[in-house]
């Protein structure tokens, strides 16, 4: 029902990258260090799974799970080429077996389950394995009582797996239903583009839905809509800003701020302590203990929660906290990883 063509110029790689929005030529390494956000116009370019993990979690904390799950061509699907062949080629090119990567890691010291979709793998489409990995991520989060963060990017359900793909919508939603009933926290980040069966299932069933600036988010793709209604689509249609104005998402958060915002939401909704402590303190403490990916710049970015600019300059003694969140992790009450 929905698809979006992936533009070559959006793809990271090469020594220099041209911003698809303002056409500024940027040194690719600099762009990667800047969260794949154009320094000139703030356009959010597509980032790789590895980059996304790096931008979201503490350095080196990600432990990927279920990497071995590999899609199967159950239908013997064949269009111009066979699906089996397409899978092989894509896996080789993208260096991953599927469009979904899941695992655990820490985010400013807090353990979380993270799932990242990869639009470069057959348009991030959801077949059996993507659905399975989403479900497994939900189950791990539930078992270990961890917050779940899913970063979505998808053209929808995968056609090559037919109705099996469609059923993944039910599988993932059913798992999320249980997770919600158990009080689990699920934060979704919808990136460019998130459409079709993914939007119509797990992506929109989060406790808090965050859109990346300018991301295309919708049920049907714009071309399908245009072909159906035969009229021009309004300016900015289906972009994050459009959806925010119509009450469909909770927030728009730019990529450099995302890690801190996720942390902040977790501290509000699944706090590590009874007492509400200033987030700047928590971030400073996390930065000391993890020495990770620049949590300091986040302190500035964490708008709306008393983020103070002093946080990054404050000395450890001044913050006066007695323990670091990394050591606490009190949400892990029942860690029943039941070794076989």
């Amino acid at each position: 029902m929905a698809w979006v063509r992936f533009r070559k110029k959006d793809m990271p790689g090469g020594l220099w990258t041209k911003c698809p929005s303002c056409e500024e030529t940027i040194f690719s390494k600099e762009l990667s260090e800047n969260f794949q956000v154009c320094p000139k116009c703030s356009h959010h370019l597509t980032c790789t799974v590895d980059e996304r993990v790096r931008y979201t979690l503490d350095e080196g904390s990600f432990e990927e799970l279920y990497t071995e799950l590999k899609p199967v061509d159950r239908l013997d699907f064949r269009d111009k080429t066979s699906y089996a062949e397409k899978l092989e080629k894509t896996a080789e090119k993208v260096k991953r077996l599927e469009a979904m990567t899941i695992g655990t890691g820490t985010l400013h010291g807090r353990e979380v389950v993270l799932g990242v979709m990869n639009f470069q793998f057959l348009g991030g489409s959801m077949g059996v394995v993507v659905g399975e990995k989403v479900t497994l991520a939900v189950e791990i989060a539930m078992e270990r009582r961890l917050p779940l963060v899913l970063v979505c990017a998808s053209g929808g359900a995968r056609m090559h797996e037919g109705a099996l793909s469609l059923m993944q919508m039910a599988k993932t939603c059913a798992a999320l239903g249980r997770f919600a009933d158990a009080g689990g926290l699920y934060l979704a980040v919808l990136t460019n583009p998130t459409t079709g069966g993914v939007t119509a299932s797990f992506a929109t069933m989060a406790d808090v839905i965050i859109g990346e600036p300018g991301a295309l988010i919708g049920f049907a793709g714009p071309r399908v809509i245009q072909n159906t209604i035969k009229q021009e689509l309004p300016e900015g249609f289906q972009r994050s800003e459009f959806l925010l104005a119509r009450g469909q998402i909770d927030r728009i958060v730019s990529r450099p701020q995302l890690k801190d915002q996720l942390f902040l939401l977790m501290e509000f909704l699944a706090p590590t302590s009874d007492e509400a402590r200033p987030v700047s303190e928590l971030l400073a403490a996390a930065s000391r203990s993890t020495n990770g990916h620049s949590p300091t710049e986040g302190a500035e970015a964490a708008e709306g929660a008393g983020a103070d600019d002093g946080a990054k300059n404050r000395l450890p003694e001044e913050s006066g906290d007695e323990e670091t969140p990394k050591k606490k992790r009190p949400r892990k009450k029942a860690k029943k990883n039941g070794k076989a």
Partner: peptide, 26 residues
């Protein structure tokens, strides 16, 4: 059983020249 953590498939997936197409329904 819990899955044994497996090492990441590895590699930087960006090759800068693929023309992936979004493929999906829903």
């Amino acid at each position: 059983g819990r899955p044994a953590p497996t090492p990441p498939a590895g590699g930087d997936e960006a090759d800068g020249e693929g023309k992936a197409e979004g493929e999906g329904g829903g």
